[in-house]
């Protein structure tokens, strides 16, 4: 990873329009990357089966923060049932920078969260 790329990721993570929490979200996920202790929570507003709005709170590296912001931007307007079909390849392509094998867990944190792989959803209401 180059410094300019990290700068961009930091901007994505820190200046994300999705930063924060939501009052009474329809879906709430939270968990951590057990390998490094990064914490992430995602709130989604669902209207007529589609993702209408999203927020996230994050304590971790710029890569997982930026990946979450970019991912949320991608899923807004999508059917909630379609989220589990987003492939790892598609998710990594959204990031637009190469991710080394050692950093895959950082980049995949939001996707794994949404797919319920990396950590368990605390509750789901749709």
């Amino acid at each position: 990873m180059k410094i300019d790329q990290l700068k961009k990721l930091q901007e994505y993570a820190q200046l994300s329009p999705y930063a924060g929490t939501m009052k009474k979200p329809d879906i709430h996920w939270e968990g951590e990357n057990p390998l490094c202790g990064d914490m992430l929570s995602i709130d989604l507003r669902v209207v007529k089966g589609k993702v209408a709005d999203a927020r996230f709170e994050h304590r971790g590296c710029a890569l997982s923060g930026a990946a979450t912001s970019i991912f949320l931007d991608h899923i807004i307007g999508k059917q909630i049932t379609a989220l589990s079909r987003i492939t790892l390849e598609k998710h990594l392509a959204l990031l637009g920078i190469p991710v080394s094998p050692g950093r895959l867990n950082c980049a995949l944190l939001p996707l794994r969260g949404i797919r319920g792989e990396g950590f368990k959803p605390l509750y789901i209401r749709t």
């Binding site: 990873m1 180059k2 410094i3 990290l6 990721l9 930091q10 490094c36 971790g60 590296c61 710029a62 890569l63 080394s100 050692g102 950093r103 950082c106």
Partner: peptide, 12 residues
């Protein structure tokens, strides 16, 4: 800078 990001930059 998060430690992981730091390690990636130094790896460059």
């Amino acid at each position: 800078i998060h430690p992981h990001d730091l390690a990636s930059l130094l790896d460059e």
